[in-house]
Design a protein around this nucleic acid. Sequence first.
DNA 1: ACAATGCTTCGGTTAGCATCGAAGTATGAA
DNA 2: TTCATACTTCGATGCTAACCGAAGCATTGT
Lengths: 226, 226
Amino acid sequence: MKEGPDIARLGALIGDPARANMLTALMSGKALTASELASEAGVTVQTASSHLSKLESGGLIHPRKQGRHRYFSLADDDVGGVLESLMGLAAKKGHMRTRTGPKDPALRQARVCYNHLAGERGVQMFDSLKTRKFLVETDEVLNLTKRGRAFVEDLGIDISNLSTNRRPLCKSCLDWSARRSHLAGALGTALLDRFYDLGWAAREPGTRIVNFTKNGEVAFLKTFGG
Amino acid sequence: MKEGPDIARLGALIGDPARANMLTALMSGKALTASELASEAGVTVQTASSHLSKLESGGLIHPRKQGRHRYFSLADDDVGGVLESLMGLAAKKGHMRTRTGPKDPALRQARVCYNHLAGERGVQMFDSLKTRKFLVETDEVLNLTKRGRAFVEDLGIDISNLSTNRRPLCKSCLDWSARRSHLAGALGTALLDRFYDLGWAAREPGTRIVNFTKNGEVAFLKTFGG
DNA sequence: ACAATGCTTCGGTTAGCATCGAAGTATGAA
DNA sequence: TTCATACTTCGATGCTAACCGAAGCATTGT
């Protein structure tokens, strides 16, 4: 029996190509069925089932039974954050798969990171919130100021609804393309959802790309400085 | 040929128990030799060598040749950050295991590194020489200034005798306990020898420990600032 | 010169695990 | 009930990579 440190188990889980494909697919934030994940990973459903049970017992994903389907999603924000930071490191080390398709620039500009906005747009929003003192970072903990709270409520977000949750309101997440931080946590999710509702942006189906509409881009730039 | 996403390669690198042990050992910030890492990982040096070359070509660690040793350290802060986040996730999932204990305190304070002084004393001496501009480091090359030369000669060391040797006069050596540098090279050797001659310190037989006498400690602190 | 130390490379063995076919369970539809 | 879909479990196979012994290379010390 081989005993390694804690991170070895996590690394081995992420280290298998099939499982890594599944996890990156789940980074879109959508819950996917076992069959869908199998085709994403390019393996049969039996193999996928084996992988999924390992990921589940490893605490990386969380199943939700619904009818005769099982929907899988990432276990929590921390898992998404770790995967994001791993992608960032991989990109920096030049091991990035060089499929320079048209998708790549779009991914860099705006994409979902599990359930919040990432990419240049996400970094821009984060910086804007910090320079205007809506967000302050003290002792590595992010806090929303009173003025920030007012700003967010002006956008039409119900803060009290979020703060009841045990999930942290504000959290910084290291970006994959830029090496800067963007906003994660409940507020990050709420903001992205609000952008959808306002018609500023929409998801490109089947990918992690977030497409901003013409009016949405104008409004976003006006709101988060240029 | 199996092609997975970028993070799979990183995951696989971290996923092997031996490599994970090496990486966690390097998380201390210290640079370690291949042999030390082998014993940390519980494998033979041949196996360790194979692992280390993989970690190096994966961009996770960075080698630094020094004499007949190769010191390895984490490539950059980003690698440490990713490992840290992985440990955090593993701890959260409850797979945490406590790790290696401390080493001999006497060794940390003052010891020989081949033939020069290492440990906290060595680092202190090195820092003192640099802040007083007796040593300057340009382009990763250490040079003794004129004032430094005078200072060393005042201690009773014959510089001209050393400079004839093909061995470099000044060389920085990465410390084992602190992760700072100390002075190696012909001058480092000469200084330690001079300490012996002056009766400031003596070797503890059979070990690498250097014991300072009471008077020697006072003189050392006076000479190299405290 | 010679020996000793630190590390790497080569070759062959072995263990683990991903993989898929086939059979089994569960849910939903006709 | 009977069939179809979604998924899991079992068993067998095959490939990868970790592992160590032995030999080779490089540096240092005597």
